[in-house]
Write a protein that binds this DNA or RNA. Structure first.
Length: 413
RNA sequence: GUGGCCAUGGUGAAGCGGUUAACACUUACGACUGUGACUCGUACAUACGAGGGUUCAAUCCCCUCUGGCCACCCCA
C-alpha cells in the first residue's frame, strides 16, 4: 500500500486551490481596505503559550493539542489557533511601542487532534484579524463589519452574525455563581454532561443541545442581565454602532466560547449548512490576554474563520482560470516558432498554452477546448512563411487573420 | 475518546458464491491525412482496501486489521 497522508490532513488539489485563492484574496482585500497588515508567525510555539492564553481547562488544551518534546527537550505545540502566537509576537517585538493601535491579520494552518468529520480536520486553516489597543466599542463594530463585509464579498449571505457579551472579571464570577445555583436546583433535569459542567463550566450548560437541558435552562438567568455597568454600556454601544451601519445581527445570550481569554463582546458567523459545525467564523474581545502573556495592559479584539468551512459553503463554483490562447502546431518544424510566440505573449501578460508533445492537430484542438481557451491558432508552414495566422474564437468558431506579432495579437484578442 | 455506516478502475458506480467484473464519465487514438464542442469506433480493473477463515469454488459469507465518511464531545 502506498503511503498516504496523515489522518485529518488534507491535500488541496488543483481543482480546489482556485476556490482557496479566491477566499484568501477576498479576505486580504477587505482587511487591507480596513487598514490591517499581514503578520506571519510560526506554526509552532512553546506549549506554555497556549496553556496560558487559551486556558488549561479548555478542551483545546486538555485533549486537542498536537504537543511533543523536541530534541532539545522543549515542550512544543503545533498551534491550535492563531491569536496566541500573534499576541506573543506583538509583545515580543513591542509593536505597541510603534503605534498604540495595531491592526493585524494572518492566515495559515492550525492543528487540533480531533476526530475528523465534515468541516473539521486535524490540520485546518484559519484566516484571522486582530485589533489591539482600542477599548472603544468602535473597534468591536469595525471588526464585525469587516467580517460581514467579507462574506458579502465572496457572495455568501447565508451565515448570520450572532453577538453576545461574556462580561469581564468584575461581573462574570458573580453571574457564574448565580447560574450555578440555578442549575443545581434543576440538576436532575439535566443531562449527564451538564451535571458535570455545572461545577466546571456552568456557562456551557446554556449551550447544550439535549432537549431536556434546553427546556430546563429556558428560564436561566442571562449574562446580559448581569453585566456590570461598564460591560453593559460597552455592549449597548457595540449594538448601536452596528445599527448605525445597518449591519444585520442577532443577539444570542447563550453563546459560549471555547477559549478562556474572551471578555465582553463575543460573536460567531453561524450557518445551518454544515451539520454540527455551525460556526464558520468566530471571535471576541480579549482585554486581559496581552497582560496575561506578560505584555502591557492593552485590550484586543479579533476573529478567525475556518477556510475549509467557507470553502464548503462556496460549493462547486468554478474558479479555474482559462487561457487566452492555445497555440497548436502542425509539425516539429513549427514548434520553435510557436514557442517563441508563446514566450512573447506571456511577456505581454497573456495566458497562453501550447502543445508540448507533438500530438495530432485534433488532440491539440481538443485540449484547447478542454482548457477553455478563448482563442486557438494553428501554426504550420504557411503561417511561419507568411507571418499571418487565423485566430479562432472558440466560443463561436469565428476566425480572424492577424499578423504573428505579439503586440498585434494582444490587441486583437 | 465513544458510536453508526461504508470500503469494486482516474471518477461515479452495477454485480453475484462458480471461468468476459455491467454501464456512464474521464483519458488516449481514430472516423475528419491543416482545426475543438455533437456523433460513432477502438483501448483502458491478472482485479473488487489488507490479512486470515468457511467452501469443491469467494469480489460476493465470517473474523481481525487498516482506511474513509457521518454523528457525539468540542470547535473554525
Amino acid at each position: 500500500m502506498a503511503i498516504t497522508a496523515i489522518k485529518g490532513f488534507n491535500d488541496i488539489l488543483p481543482s480546489e486551490s482556485g476556490r482557496w485563492q479566491h477566499i484568501e484574496q477576498a479576505a486580504r482585500s477587505v482587511f487591507e481596505r480596513n487598514g490591517f497588515s499581514e503578520i506571519r508567525v510560526p506554526i509552532m510555539e512553546k506549549t506554555e503559550l497556549f496553556c496560558r492564553s487559551i486556558g488549561d481547562a479548555t478542551d483545546i488544551v486538555e485533549k486537542e493539542m498536537y504537543s511533543f518534546i523536541d530534541k532539545g527537550e522543549n515542550a512544543i505545540t503545533l498551534r491550535p489557533e492563531g491569536t496566541a502566537g500573534v499576541m506573543r509576537a506583538f509583545i515580543e517585538h513591542k509593536l505597541y511601542a510603534q503605534d498604540p493601535v495595531a491592526k493585524l491579520y494572518y492566515l495559515g494552518p492550525m492543528f487540533r487532534y480531533e476526530r475528523p468529520q465534515k468541516g473539521r480536520y486535524r490540520q485546518f486553516h484559519q484566516i484571522g484579524a486582530e485589533i489591539t489597543g482600542v477599548h472603544d466599542p468602535l473597534a468591536d463594530a469595525q471588526v464585525l463589519n469587516m467580517l460581514v463585509q467579507f462574506f458579502r464579498d465572496i457572495g455568501l449571505d447565508e451565515p448570520q452574525l450572532q453577538v453576545n457579551s461574556l462580561g469581564c472579571p468584575d461581573c462574570r464570577p458573580a453571574y457564574r455563581t448565580t447560574l450555578m445555583a440555578f442549575l443545581e436546583q434543576r440538576a436532575d433535569a439535566l443531562c449527564e454532561d451538564c451535571r458535570r459542567r455545572m461545577t466546571t463550566n456552568p456557562l456551557r450548560a446554556l449551550d447544550c443541545k439535549v432537549p431536556g437541558c434546553i427546556a430546563a435552562t429556558a428560564g436561566a438567568p442571562s449574562m446580559l442581565d448581569n453585566l456590570c455597568t461598564g460591560c453593559s454600556d460597552h455592549f449597548a454601544s457595540v449594538r448601536q454602532y452596528l445599527d448605525t451601519t445597518a449591519t444585520p445581527y442577532s443577539i444570542n445570550p447563550r453563546m459560549v466560547r471555547g477559549l478562556d481569554y474572551y471578555t465582553r463582546t463575543t460573536f460567531e458567523m453561524v450557518t445551518g449548512l454544515l451539520g454540527s459545525q455551525s460556526a464558520v467564523a468566530a471571535g471576541g474581545r480579549y482585554d486581559g490576554l496581552i497582560s496575561q502573556l506578560g505584555g502591557p495592559a492593552i485590550p484586543g479584539i479579533g476573529f478567525a474563520m475556518g477556510v475549509e468551512r467557507v470553502a464548503l459553503l462556496l460549493g462547486d463554483k468554478d474558479f479555474a482560470r482559462q487561457p487566452d490562447l492555445f497555440i497548436a502546431t502542425l509539425g516539429a518544424g513549427e514548434r520553435g516558432f510557436a514557442f517563441r510566440l508563446l514566450h512573447d505573449l506571456l511577456q505581454l501578460g497573456l495566458r497562453v498554452e501550447m502543445d508540448y508533445e507533438g500530438k495530432s492537430l485534433k488532440s491539440q484542438m481538443r485540449r484547447a477546448d478542454r482548457l477553455g481557451a478563448r482563442y486557438s491558432v494553428v501554426i504550420g508552414e504557411n503561417e511561419v512563411s507568411s507571418g499571418r495566422a487565423h485566430f479562432k474564437r472558440m466560443a463561436d468558431g469565428e476566425q480572424v487573420e492577424v499578423m504573428l506579432i505579439a503586440e498585434h495579437i494582444k490587441q486583437t484578442l
